[in-house]
Design a protein around this nucleic acid. Sequence first.
DNA 1: CGTTTTTGACCAGCGC
DNA 2: GCGCTGGTCAAAAACG
Length: 230
Amino acid sequence: MDVPSSVKDKVEGVEAELEQLQKENAALRLMLQVMSNKYKMLSEAYFRESNSQLAANSSQVFVETDPRDESHIVKDGFQWRKYGQKVTKHNPFPRAYFRCSMAPGCPVKKKVQRCMEDKNFLMATYEGRHNHEVNPSIGQSLSSPTSSATTSISGFPNSVLDNPLRSAIALDLNLSSENSCGNGNDDDYNNKRSMEDHVAASLAKDPSFTLALAAAVARSITEHPKPPTN
DNA sequence: CGTTTTTGACCAGCGC
DNA sequence: GCGCTGGTCAAAAACG
């Protein structure tokens, strides 16, 4: 059958546009790769500096874990000794108190509590500066294939680089000490809204999330949609 | 047997 | 002063 020339022109136009988009996608992929490499180098530099930065302020992170796992284990490269546990007023989940036991006299403490809004997350608050180096062999357990819990920790970018999408859930909430995931606020609705707002803002500022978003957009253009793997 | 975890008691800070 | 809350202590238990 004959195809009208106007339709043929349209098809050619769409094909040209498609080809152009594919070229752009290829360019974006290349840029993404370059950005990933640069991000990796920056992350490594940040990792080296992160220990000293803990001294200025307490640092708060979210860690995704299996909600059935009732232990407060956050594999962050340090050894911790638990010295107390409390049930706090605004969170039904107990808060665990840890001291760093990697070196005698290390003043670093951390509090770990399951997030009230999302049981998939542990909220860890670090205080103080380590007077020793991190043990890399402990940190590597983060990506152990035998571990059932999925953990990702902001400030420890090895896991981030393994899975940029997963890294988006690890948020450094250093700037929001008063907005600590459901603690200290009676209004659940406003609490959740403010938390969502803050999470959205944090995501927008998170470079790994930006990378992940770019990758997802690129995939959605060039490939058939795939079901999420996690 | 040394180390770590558990858990109730204790203490300090804060608001009323 | 009293009660509430979060943080720490320390003895006992558990663990390797």
